[in-house]
């Protein structure tokens, strides 16, 4: 205890508050008052803070590589991903086959490249689905409250209680394997946290004075929710969604690895790791490269998500 002497815990924020009260907030303000020397929009501030965060920029570069790979997979791939050649099975990395070939003689590099498409598609689509469900139910729960709130939150509890993978397996067992079932399964088991986050965010925003002002102007509930409440409560939800995409990609790969994801012939990282593990210890490149692809993509989303969170809420730094 260095500061036992001080009877009061140092109010860390206070220093910046007093100094900054008219310092940070007032910087732009003053410019506005004297005729707009520098105008800083909120978006500009967020972008500036994001770009100053090294890890976030690294994440952005990683994601760019991932997306470019996904979009241009047929051009980047050196071989057709499903082309088998039983003459060249299980060959190590070479100039011809950069990541080697698997037990059916397929080019691992090309399969990893095409796997990006599945990973990104499933990750984004499932979280988009989760966002749609979560935002609708979260808004109803947060803004209408009462019985709606109780009902929706209990349903959310049920979905929240299931581990993502177990829940997804149950759905897939019912509707069968395939890309669409995986998306639906992951989406269905990812919305609960989004709804809860949005709900708590809305609960604080709906008490704000600008919402009260809108009510006193006679604005309808729909208008208040769409114009005032949602735009101001979405930031934490979007940040969470960004990180969720990473979780969905891992889950997707896990489902394939467990043999309940996309069909085995589809070039998919989980499938590749699953079939590669048979050769664990002597043909390690078979599972190593697809694993690295998963790690690379997931880290990209996590870095960008974290950077976004810090940029949107400078108090967390």
């Amino acid at each position: 205890m260095t500061d036992q002497a001080v009877p009061a815990a140092p109010p860390v924020g206070e220093v910046t508050l007093e100094a900054g009260a008219s310092g940070f907030g007032g910087a732009e303000t003053q410019a506005a008052a004297v005729g707009g020397i520098t105008r800083q929009t909120q978006f500009g501030n967020v972008r500036r803070r994001f770009l100053r965060n090294k890890l976030a920029v690294v994440g952005l570069v990683m994601l760019t590589i991932v997306f470019v790979t996904a979009v241009f997979a047929p051009i980047i791939a050196t071989h057709p991903p499903r082309a088998q050649d039983l003459n060249i099975t299980l060959q190590g990395p070479s100039a011809q086959h950069w990541f080697g070939t698997d037990e059916l003689g397929r080019d691992v590099f090309s399969r990893v490249v095409h796997g990006t498409r599945i990973a990104v598609t499933v990750g984004l689509a499932s979280i988009f689905l989760a966002l749609v469900i979560g935002v609708v139910l979260g808004s109803v729960s947060g803004y209408l409250g009462r019985a709606w709130d109780a009902l929706i939150m209990r349903i959310a509890d049920v979905f929240f209680a299931f581990p993502l993978i177990i829940g997804a397996i149950m759905i897939i067992l019912v509707v069968g394997r395939g890309v669409a079932p995986v998306i639906i399964a992951l989406g269905l088991f990812s919305w609960a946290t989004i709804a809860r986050l949005l709900r708590s965010s809305i609960l604080s925003i709906r008490e704000s004075e600008y919402v009260e002002a809108a009510r006193s102007l006679g604005a309808s509930k729909w208008r208040i929710v769409t114009r005032h409440v949602l735009p101001n409560s979405m930031a934490p939800v979007l940040v969470y969604a960004m990180v969720s995409v990473a979780a969905a990609i891992v889950a997707q790969a896990s489902l394939s690895y467990l043999g309940v994801g996309v069909p085995p012939d589809v070039p998919d990282w989980g499938n590749m790791i699953s079939s590669g593990q048979k050769f664990f210890g002597f043909k390690d490149y078979l599972w190593f490269f697809p694993s690295m692809a998963v790690v690379f993509t997931v880290l990209g989303f996590v870095f960008v998500g974290d950077g976004l969170r810090d940029a949107l809420d400078p108090r967390l730094r």
Binding site: Y210, E212, A213, A214, S216, L217, P231, N232
Partner: peptide, 16 residues
């Protein structure tokens, strides 16, 4: 009938 609020930092929607 209309209202003027106490806190000018809280009574205006920051995104409008």
């Amino acid at each position: 009938m209309q209202m003027i609020f106490q806190d000018p930092f809280a009574s205006l929607n920051p995104r409008m």
